[in-house]
């Protein structure tokens, strides 16, 4: 998320970033990309052990199982490999793309748990789906977050040193 956030900042608030912050953020992206890659590989292993302990292998061939595999391979395994290649090649753009991929994967995982696979055994008309007010509340909270971040990042010395206090940042 930090890598993705910086990719967005780099695109839309590039004029606020000074050279020192730019260099530091590249090192942060490389370090976090390495950590994310290894942690996601570890998460994948934990999931495999979880399947093993419950002996759930037989479910992987079902439709729900295939959906689970899409989440695990498509949104955990593959981004982990792309992160690893990006870190090896020192390719920040590749790491940033992998971070967007991972964020989409996290959103997909939360939606799978709270909506898609929640009470999966019930008929569709008895399943939970958020009302328009809940959806608008979510949109409101995300919008407030983005507006607050932009307000702070454009008015305070977050992405650059304050000209009056260059050594205190």
């Amino acid at each position: 998320m930090v890598i993705f956030e910086h990719a967005v900042v780099d695109r839309f608030l590039h004029d606020k970033i000074d050279e020192e912050h730019d260099i530091e953020s590249r090192n942060v992206a490389l370090g976090f990309g390495k950590a994310a890659s290894f942690l996601m590989a570890g998460y994948l292993m934990i999931q495999v052990i979880g399947i093993t302990m419950d002996d759930d292998w037989k479910y992987l061939g079902t439709r729900w199982g295939l959906w689970y595999l899409i989440e695990m391979i498509g949104f955990v395994g593959l981004p982990a490999v792309v992160y690893a290649i990006g870190v090896r090649e020192r390719n920040i753009e590749m790491i940033q793309k992998a971070s967007l991929w991972t964020v989409i994967g996290i959103v997909l995982n939360r939606l799978n748990i709270s909506l898609v696979a929640f009470n999966w055994q019930l008929p569709l008309d008895q399943r939970y789906f958020p009302s328009w007010m809940e959806i608008m509340t979510t949109v409101f909270i995300i919008t407030i977050g983005v507006v607050m971040f932009k307000f702070i990042a454009t008015r305070m010395p977050i992405l650059h040193a304050h000209p009056d206090y260059p050594d205190d940042h």
Partner: peptide, 26 residues
């Protein structure tokens, strides 16, 4: 299940260091 889990852990103990080696190789 425990027997299979031990085998999976053995694979993980080999695979994760190899992945780390790939990750930090350069």
């Amino acid at each position: 299940t425990k027997g299979i889990a031990y085998l999976v852990m053995a694979v993980a103990l080999v695979a994760l260091p190899l992945f780390w080696h790939f990750l930090t190789g350069r």
